[in-house]
Simulated assay, not measured.
Amino acid sequence: MIEQNRRQISGHPLIQEINNTQVPYGTAGIWFLGQESVILKGDGITIYIDPFVSDELEKTQGIVRLYEPPTAPEHITNADMCLITHEHEDHLDPGTLRLIAKQNQSSLIMAPAWCREKLLQIGFDPMKTVDADTEQALSFFDSKIKIRAVPAAHEELEVNSLGQHRYVGYVLELNGVKIYHAGDTLVYDGLTEWLRHQEIDLALLPINGRDYFRTKRGIVGNMNYREAAELAANIGVDAVIPLHYDTFAGNAERPGNFVDELNEKHARPKCHVLARGERFVYVSPKAFLQE
């Protein structure tokens, strides 16, 4: 019934496409909005990760995008849940989240505890705001989805006095597919081994890297395309999608370098580079097996 109502009221073509997309067991719908902003759909649940489609960063800091986002905050009326990886404004975007909170009042939001006060100021219901817990997986929507936050090092692992991590990624189990969205992170000791044991199907990894000159300008970095390719290969994922390479001129990378690195040095995993606004349906090996 919820999906039927969404099909009737949605107006923007991208949002309508998401609402009308039904994916069978063992698959997941994925839409790329740029930077690390993606939308996932499976089992009738629509999840926004780091939704960043407003112009607030440009208005407040003069940081200009290289392109217009494929949708705008006022069109987002179908968010069942949002996941935020950290407080930087190209990940926790007040201009986008303010309207998501207003237009999707039943939706949940999960983020590091470091972000809670900012999210409440934006307008999220404290009862629907969940702290990202790196110690255990949490279940939502009658256990249709399980989510575990993973510590991220952007560029260091940082915790508060309660041991809560400032930066996280997420491992999601949805519709028979296990997905790792790394957030902003370097590869740190223990990450590869931990991820290998998770038996992840699809990894979404940043590739923009870091260097001396960007660090001097206050730009915090991530793994580069070589590190991301080796991580994907070493943790044994079926497929990988590169992220965080396209939005700002001073902090970009060529995704073709990532594809070449995989092709030349690693037999697997499969790789897909998403166009902004593209619908990609990931099909896992489980898709053709009986539940």
Rank of each mutant, 00 (worst) to 15 (best):
G95T: 10
C115Y: 08
L191K: 04
E89K: 08
P94Q: 06
A233F: 05
P94M: 02
G42K: 01
I18A: 09
T134N: 00
L186W: 10
L40F: 15
T129Q: 03
R254K: 14
Y188F: 13
L262Q: 04
R196T: 15
L202D: 11
N19S: 14
V177M: 11
T247N: 05
L231T: 06
S161N: 09
V64K: 15
I100C: 11
G62A: 03
R217T: 00
G163R: 02
G62F: 05
M1F: 01
L119T: 02
R268D: 07
N160Q: 02
V53N: 02
I49E: 06
R98W: 07
D133R: 03
P94I: 05
S107P: 07
D93A: 08
H75S: 12
E135C: 00
I207K: 12
H91Q: 10
F258E: 05
I47F: 05
S37W: 01
G236V: 10
E3N: 12
G176C: 11
T247C: 12
Y170F: 15
G256N: 15
G256I: 06
N234P: 00
E158L: 13
L97A: 09
V168P: 00
G190V: 06
T185W: 04
V38N: 14
V281D: 09
I200V: 13
A137S: 15
F280D: 10
K216A: 11
L66Q: 15
R166I: 01
H88M: 06
G11H: 12
Q103M: 14
A232N: 06
K146D: 12
E261I: 00
L174Q: 06
T21P: 03
R196M: 11
A79S: 13
K144C: 01
N257D: 15
P73Y: 01
M81S: 02
L274K: 01
Y180T: 09
T192C: 11
V159D: 00
E156P: 00
F280H: 15
A229I: 01
